[in-house]
């Protein structure tokens, strides 16, 4: 067999493990990500306090054995609040990925497959990408009123063009491939060609892009919350904790540092995983298709 082409199906466990071993950083990224997700999911069992329990006597205590990350201006435990905040931040990120990937894929496939509407869709995408992400998100949330659902909708819209562009480019490649032509020659209806052949082969670029959008969305959600245009300020998210701690930055910098670290760690590990996924999945798109 000449030039064994690799596809996802061909990627054996052993080969995957070899790739992962070469890049130890990605293992660290995966471990951090897993830890953050597990902590968020099992928050009630792993946190020592209630996230909103105020103890004025214990206010603004630096990190200690009782309060690992210290306490805030109401004596609430920062460790507990960061873990609970992760729930909202990760949820917002994941839902944003879902919204952006679904709408981006629909738009990208339509633009890539049907030349007639490509011009219109591509120009709209370009126009949206000309806006700075966070500015567009603020404007959208301001119009929709701040709430978790609206933050997700706004960020989903903001990151749709990113996904749509990549999907469009990949669709343009896939639609010209002989196996798509073969399906046309067989008389397979267009909608079935799109569902069966195009979408299936788009999985890799979408997964890769989704990972990056996840990272951007966590960052953007924190930014929105920090600016007061995100979820309501009393809900703990990484962004709202930082926003609240900002005015005490001089006296109690730990209020901002720990949620900030949570953001940095999760975004960094997502980017690491995304980069590796791209290296594993994307050469196949070029070579195999």
């Amino acid at each position: 067999m000449s030039a064994p082409s690799e596809s996802v199906a061909a990627l054996s466990g052993a080969r995957l493990w070899a790739i992962l071993r070469q890049r130890k950083a990605v293992l660290l990224g995966l471990a951090i990500l897993a830890a953050i997700v597990l902590l968020a999911v099992f928050a009630p069992y792993v946190t020592p306090y209630e996230p909103n329990r105020m103890r004025i006597s214990q206010r603004m205590r630096p990190p200690s054995a009782q309060n690992w990350f210290g306490t805030d201006e109401f004596g609430r435990d920062i460790f507990t609040r960061v873990i609970y905040g992760g729930r909202i931040s990760l949820l917002a990120g994941a839902l944003t990925v879902l919204v952006a990937c679904v709408s981006g894929t629909v738009l990208g496939v339509l633009a890539g497959f049907f030349k007639r509407i490509d011009g219109v869709i591509s120009r709209i995408i370009d126009a949206m990408m000309a806006f700075p992400d966070i500015l567009l998100a603020i404007a959208l949330v301001a119009v929709l009123r701040p709430s978790l659902a609206n933050v997700v909708i706004a960020l989903g819209i903001v990151y749709t063009p990113r996904v749509a562009r990549v999907v469009r480019a990949a669709t343009l490649v896939i639609r010209e491939l002989p196996f798509v032509e073969a399906a046309r020659a067989l008389g397979v209806p267009t909608w079935r060609i799109i569902l069966r052949h195009v979408l299936r082969n788009l999985a890799s670029p979408i997964i890769v892009q989704g990972t990056f959008v996840f990272a951007y969305a966590i960052l953007a959600e924190a930014g929105l919350s920090f600016l007061g245009t995100g979820v309501s300020p009393e809900t703990p998210t990484w962004g709202t904790i930082i926003a609240a701690g900002q005015q005490y930055a001089r006296q109690a910098d730990w209020i901002m540092i720990f949620p900030g670290l949570a953001i940095v760690l999760s975004v960094l590990s997502l980017q690491l995983v995304g980069d590796t996924l791209r290296d594993i999945l994307d050469p196949k798109l070029r070579k195999d298709l």
Binding site: A3, V8, P178, F179, A182, A183, A185, R200, N201, L289
Partner: peptide, 16 residues
């Protein structure tokens, strides 16, 4: 009417 393609690698969907 049917067609048989030149490239035996790209004429099949790699995921099927």
């Amino acid at each position: 009417m049917q067609i048989i393609f030149q490239d035996p690698y790209s004429s099949f969907d790699p995921k099927l």
